[in-house]
Design a protein around this nucleic acid. Structure first.
Lengths: 204, 204
DNA sequence: GTATTTGCTGAACAGTGTTTAGTATAATTG
DNA sequence: CAATTATACTAAACACTGTTCAGCAAATAC
């Protein structure tokens, strides 16, 4: 009686099919301008069908966010694995900024967009928690080994994260045009600013 | 023949009436959830009338942003006027964070929202330019007088602004709940983190 | 072979930004 | 003052949006 298992599998496949289509459109035209009808059209189903697999548009965003956070964590694990926590901190920061600038659509969904976050707290604990954990553990190690000019792990993690997020989000939302005219100079400028900061923070 | 002048005056009055109503609703329910119909209702006009004074919803946002930037500049001028640029930098940062946390709706419109910015560059030069100028001049003075651990004015201005913006925007978008559970502790935490940073940056 | 459950659809509801034809009122002209 | 023109506004319409739900065909269960 493998029918229930098959149905279960078909259900998760359908959920994934919808999620993939949603992610594609979110990245192409943004969350706000993506409509349920467009998603449904792109996979050749009726709009109502989406609601048989996802409660509402926000739940679709949760799912996409989940995948995006996993992707960022993957980037961290791949690009920031130096044993020296101070060097690893540099790698994490660089990877973070690069990720943000190269995937503005994803970054938006993860850290800027309003939509759901306000509601449930458990969701972004499991979602963003792992990525932030990677950073905060690195900072903690830096403090332990006295490689960094800080004492409080929580506050310094927040400082590093906020700076990186500030740089990326101001750029994504085009607020840096007040001070950086040349679009191509952005990446260099953000990287240099982050490095200036790290040079100051990290003990020599 | 004062009729043309009167009409001109009535036109600007009407524009202001609409703008005030729009600002009020933007702050109450946010830009996205504010509808032209609601704005029109609140001032007892038909929706179409709004379009006789503003091209579209975005242009309404431009106007509100303009007022918001003026308000922030006012706060700077009032709360950050110490002659010592290093002390003034502290005042600016504190005022910025306080402004953001106390006026999340305004802050959103100014620095987070997507909508217009992408289009025209001149707009946020005149808009955000003055506020940013207040900060960047302070930083420049700090560097001149060697009160600060930096050399490049542009990069350090960006660093300070990004950190402050990162702190505020992560909070407004509820991304700090991953690391700060107690809502009341937020203000203290952000202030402490900013101060930790300034303590490190400012020469003693 | 009949009954039941499942998966999906298409239409409907209430809302959105925006455009436009039409209409009272006000201003100008003869 | 009367007739005409310009102005300010409205109501309705268009093409969308997220979401719900009655109904239906096909797969499953008995």
């Amino acid at each position: 009686m493998g029918v229930t298992e098959r149905k279960e599998r078909e259900k998760t496949e359908m959920r994934q099919l919808i999620l993939d289509a949603a992610l594609k459109m979110f990245l192409e035209v943004g969350y706000a301008k993506t409509s349920i009808r467009n998603i449904a059209d792109s996979i050749e189903y009726s709009p109502g069908t989406i609601y048989l697999y996802y409660k509402d548009k926000d739940e679709l965003l949760y799912g996409v966010q989940h995948q995006a956070y996993a992707k960022l964590l993957e980037v961290f694990q791949k690009k920031a694995k130096d044993k020296n926590p101070a060097k690893r901190l540099r790698e994490i920061c660089q990877a973070y900024i690069e990720f943000g600038l190269k995937n503005p659509g994803l970054y938006d969904l993860m850290f800027i967009i309003r939509s759901p976050m306000n509601v449930d707290e458990t969701i972004h604990k499991t979602n963003g928690g792992n990525c932030l954990g990677y950073l905060s553990q690195c900072v903690a190690e830096c403090i332990e080994q006295k490689l960094i000019k800080f004492e409080d792990a929580k506050s310094s993690t927040l400082q590093v994260w906020s700076l990186a997020h500030g740089l990326v989000s101001l750029d994504i939302r085009c607020r840096l045009r007040v001070m950086i005219q040349d679009e191509n100079a952005v990446y260099e400028m953000l990287g240099a600013t982050m490095n200036n900061y790290l040079d100051m923070v990290i003990n020599k």
